[in-house]
Amino acid sequence: MVEVPFIAIEGPIGIGKTSLATKLSNHFQFHLLQEIVEENPFLSKFYDDIEAWSFQTEMFFLCNRFKQLEDIETQYLKMNKPVIADYHISKNMIFAKRTLDQDKFEKYEKIYRILTEDMPTPNIMIYLHASLDTILNRIQQRGREFEQKIEVSYLEQLSRDYEQYMNEFEILHPNIPIIRINGDKVDFIRHQTDLNQIISSVSKKLDEKTSHYE
């Protein structure tokens, strides 16, 4: 059975996940799945007081991402229609571990495990990473008001969390290739040659997946 392409892009806040997902979606003509961010009614309060609003914020994201993936599975993947997403639902655990106290995290984790136990898993991962300076510049450039309140220390820790998460993901999912892109050296928005290199890397992984199932 041929595996329907399902690509997920991950990386810290502001790294360019949605921009890259949109460009790759247009190139490969894959359905684009974008996470719900600005619609989260708790997010602005969260960055004002993480401890007070973390559980509500994380639960909103989890429930909405679950619903999105449920729809994607039935409307696209099961219909053999490829999908590219600007997130992977397992990112929820990165943020929950960082923001929730132990009691709330244990409750959250139980709900997360129940909801995601039979969710579709991407068969290619793209990991965008960069230095803190690059991330801060990109956050400032896109100008989301609530993101301007993010503490630098939080972003710095989040970048380390993502690096650990991707290293663990690679061990736990050896059959899912990871394309790592250094945002300090690659600017796929300004330079077409950089985007072409990424497209070439993705095409190669797609070809490898196809040949594996032939």
Rank of each mutant, 00 (worst) to 15 (best):
S203T: 14
P177L: 08
V202I: 14
K45M: 08
Y165W: 14
E168W: 00
F28A: 11
D71G: 04
L24A: 04
L32N: 07
E147A: 06
F61R: 04
Y108M: 11
S131Q: 04
S131W: 00
Q102M: 09
L206Q: 02
L69C: 07
L33R: 04
I198L: 07
T193I: 09
L43M: 09
Q141A: 15
R144P: 04
R190P: 00
V202D: 03
L69I: 12
K104T: 13
F6T: 03
R138E: 01
Q102F: 05
N80L: 03
Q34Y: 00
T57I: 10
H212Y: 10
G11T: 10
N80H: 12
E35K: 08
M59V: 14
I9R: 02
A85N: 05
S44W: 00
D194S: 11
L43W: 01
Q102Y: 04
M1V: 11
I171W: 00
R98E: 13
E156M: 12
I111P: 06
E214L: 13
I50M: 14
N80W: 00
N196M: 06
K97L: 09
D207I: 05
T99R: 05
S19K: 11
I94A: 10
H27I: 09
E58M: 09
I178R: 01
H27C: 07
I72M: 12
K91G: 06
G16R: 03
